[in-house]
Amino acid sequence: MNSETTDIADDAPASGKTEPKIAVDDVRKVFGRIVALEDVNLTVRENEIFAVVGDNGAGKSTLMNVLCGIHGPTTGSLRLDGRPVAFESPDEARARGIETVYQDLALMDDLDVATNIFMGNFPERRIGPVSLIDWEETYRRAERIIETHLERTIDPRAEVAFHSGGERQLVAIARALAFDPDVVILDEPTSALSVDATELVQDTVRTLQRNGKTIVIVSHSLDEIFGLADRVGVLYQGRMAAIMDADDVSKAELSSLMVSGERP
């Protein structure tokens, strides 16, 4: 690890009164003989937008998978609100308020927006011994999530296939919000989107922040994180090469850190 470029002081909680929302302590993750993550330390503050960037193979996806419970760390640990946590599955991470929006969005195109948002989590009403999906409530809640949390208008009764790339991303985010998480992890949220759609998604991420969510964006695109992230962590060959305020770093510096692990 290049200790000169790692800003430990900046990595500390913003104020002394609160613990960081998420802390990654000395995490190492090994797959067979491949070391995907080595001594990774970082903290994500409450209500900030934290971007994890890095080149292909830098360990971004592995770090995201550790945070969202897909993989457990080989060594090291995680803390949530100051308390140690160990997730054995994404469901456990979800139960602790961490939701992930994957790059491929995992949307069912043939189904409507509300069904996608509540798949596996439908509002139900009991009729005798039987629980049935309450469709009125499903559409009402979907509309509320989209309008209140995302501050957008998307018809919850329209098929997902009917929507643009940006709107589809919003549907995936809305699905994460259906579980009322504190932390939303976004994997490459604007990759393969048009300029307009990218703007739409970035606006939505800012709205999430305004609404009190803590956001972790995993990306390889510098354009994606500038003007959006509060802080940036750069992964290089499985190590955290630097953590910086986004305002204090240039594209050239970030590019250099991503490709060589060092500042220019």
Partner: peptide, 13 residues
């Protein structure tokens, strides 16, 4: 609804 989801996109489901 899970059957519809699997039919629409098994990986996403």
């Amino acid at each position: 609804q899970a059957v519809y989801a699997v039919g629409s996109d098994e990986d996403a489901a």
